[in-house]
Design a binder for these strands. Structure first.
Lengths: 216, 216
DNA sequence: CCTACCGATCGGTAGG
DNA sequence: CCTACCGATCGGTAGG
């Protein structure tokens, strides 16, 4: 939403016929934008926002140094686009992971597993960038992305409160939610898919750590 | 240790007598170095390493733009000094928090509370900088600080293993330790001393979340 | 520790 | 989307 004003307008029609495979009047329009976002996400994650140059990003997307600014008003707006794309993908993944009829414990397990996928699936640099570059956004950009985050977090409250009511989660839910997200998000610092523990293993460990056994 | 080569050598003895209050032959030597480290820590935390300029740091320490390089070989070596100072303070605090005779649960509680102090005490920017700017260090700098981190983390293993043996911690200790550190470290993103929950409240919540009730 | 400075780089833009 | 470029800034250094 915050990026609307940068949506690709109709490009200058220099070759009106386009390339053979394209419908007449429709060109590659805007297809380079996702490539820029992907390249930026990877570089922002590896080197950080401030240490990444727009020239790095352009080169990774196969462009010349000034070309990113045809698609994005500024470097910061590229960062915001990365984060928005990350949150949209995370919300979509979360919706798929949550069937309506799950009991609270298995709902929480699915949320955790889905969250780990969002953080660690191959090429999933978008949300980690959001977690580490929040301060590089201006106030307006933060507002837009914060509302996506609230939506994402809202799905966790129901299962957590149900588990608290059952006595299987003993900490106050608001603080517990923050601590749990911290435990999961911090995995971007240490999780290595080539090591022994898999994401399923880590999900099991998280459930064992946070959720107490059911009382008979 | 990694910073040894930058320790202030005897400064050029331009005013051999020094100022009145000083012993002859001893000047302010090196007293500006801590001020630089403090200023750098605050700025690195607020704006990030790459977005902070050495001019910012110099100004915050009341110096001219080139002067930090009299005390530190490079901007990165200033970052390493910030992190080392943070780990030394954290280790000292941890040692004070741990009496030898505590049971595992209260030992863990003290470790958690001490860790929160290290992260959130007024002016405690050093360790948060370490948590967020690890990638800005080169390999040699990482090695030096990693050994301090290992020492710090080692103190947690005993209590955690004892609690696992008692059935009060159900997840595998190595993964549990990573998840717990994540939950605590993430608090730098959300903890606000002016809000309702105090560090004692958050410590209580963390213990309730991770440690299951003692079986009678 | 200051003064004066350098070489390199960076985000962004005009014009096509 | 490329070419050519600008103004500003940055880490770092020489010399005192």
């Amino acid at each position: 939403m915050v990026q609307r004003q940068f949506a690709p307008a109709a490009p200058p029609a220099k070759r009106p016929r386009g390339r053979p495979r394209k419908t007449a009047g429709e060109r590659d329009e805007g297809n380079r934008r996702p490539a820029l976002i992907r390249a930026a996400a990877r570089l922002f994650r590896r080197k950080g926002f401030a240490a990444t140059t727009t020239r790095d990003i352009a080169a990774a997307a196969g462009m010349q140094s000034g070309s990113p600014f045809y698609h994005f008003k500024s470097k910061a707006s590229l960062l915001a686009a990365v984060m928005e794309e990350g949150m949209r993908a995370a919300l979509a993944r979360q919706a798929l992971a949550l069937p309506g009829n799950a009991d609270p414990a298995s709902a929480l397990r699915r949320l955790i597993r889905s969250h780990f996928d969002t953080l660690h699936a191959p090429g999933a640099d978008f949300v980690p960038v959001m977690l580490y570059e929040w301060r590089s956004l201006n106030a307006r950009q933060r507002t837009a992305i914060a509302s996506l985050q609230r939506e994402y977090e809202a799905a966790w409250v129901g299962p957590l409160e149900a588990l608290a009511a059952n006595g299987r989660l003993r900490a106050p839910v608001p603080i517990a939610r923050l601590l749990i997200f911290g435990a999961l998000n911090w995995s971007v610092q240490w999780f290595d898919p080539r090591r022994s523990a898999s994401l399923d293993d880590v999900t099991d460990a998280a459930m064992e750590l946070f959720i107490h056994p059911e009382l008979p």
